[in-house]
Simulated assay, not measured.
Amino acid sequence: MSTTPNEPQNPQSGVPGQPGPAQSGQPMPYGQGAVNGARQDGPNGQPSGQQYGQAGGKYGTAEYNPGQYTGLMERPSTIDRLLKLTLVSLGISVLSSILSIIGVLTADTDALLREQGGAAASQAGAADVARMVGTMGTVVGVIGLIISIGLYLLVYFNLKKGRNWARILGTVFAAIAILSGIFGLFSGTSGMSTGIYIAGIVLGVVKIVVDILWIVTAYKAPTTAWFNQNSVQR
């Protein structure tokens, strides 16, 4: 039987003039691009049309974690707390030193002389002695303040670098400060005014508490593990 001229044939349907599945608007099996009803898979066996990286991060990789492959622990929060306590202790130490210098400069002359074993300001040369005591106290206070700031900064910056000897040195300084602070609470006024004396007592108590917290934080388990890790790396 001959076909009608200009009548299209569909090789898939086998019937002249009858549209195939693609021409009739019916969806092809397993999406477009299927051949003979078979699903067309992409590379690595993935179905065609599936984008890469849907199950993971961008480009199929997981989010970057700096400690994932190195096996090193990140700096714990106790180190940040230790650094803050170091700066707080430094600030209190500076204030206490300045207050002490002011107290020496404004101290009662008679009280200073009696503390040094003198009789009173009326004795010969008492004014000169009081002036000399005040000058010496100021010089010693300023020198001590400069040394204290330098030691604090030495400990602070080396703690930040993870050096264990800085933790040990800071512990020694904190212990000495605690003992001297307790002793200072029971010492005399040294002729200082009542306001300066009370302010000095308050600062002394606060510094003792801060230094105790410093030592406790310095030897918590995460802090010790972090310092030990840095010691092994070096």
Results as ranks from 00 to 15, higher is better:
S100L: 11
V155L: 04
K160F: 06
A120D: 14
V94Q: 01
S180W: 04
G49T: 04
K84Q: 14
G42P: 04
S24R: 15
V210K: 04
Y152F: 13
G71H: 05
A22H: 10
P29F: 03
G141D: 07
G57W: 02
N164I: 08
F227I: 00
L87H: 03
L145D: 03
G53F: 00
E63F: 09
G31W: 07
N65T: 02
A174N: 07
L113A: 06
V205C: 04
P27E: 12
G204W: 09
V88P: 00
G181N: 11
G31L: 01
T70M: 01
G170R: 09
I98V: 15
G33S: 09
L72E: 15
Y30V: 03
V210D: 06
K220P: 05
A62T: 12
E7W: 06
V104E: 10
G67H: 10
K161N: 07
A225F: 06
I101T: 05
S187P: 05
L85V: 09
A55R: 14
A127C: 08
A127S: 07
T217E: 04
G60W: 03
G31N: 08
V172G: 06
L83V: 11
V133P: 07
A107F: 09
A38S: 10
I147T: 07
M132K: 00
Q12K: 13
I79W: 09
K160V: 03
Y156R: 02
V140P: 09
G162T: 03
I201Y: 05
S2W: 13
N164Y: 04
L113S: 05
R81V: 03
M136H: 00
R75P: 08
G49H: 05
S13M: 15
G117I: 10
K84A: 14
S24A: 15
F183C: 02
L185E: 01
V88Y: 00
T189C: 08
V172F: 10
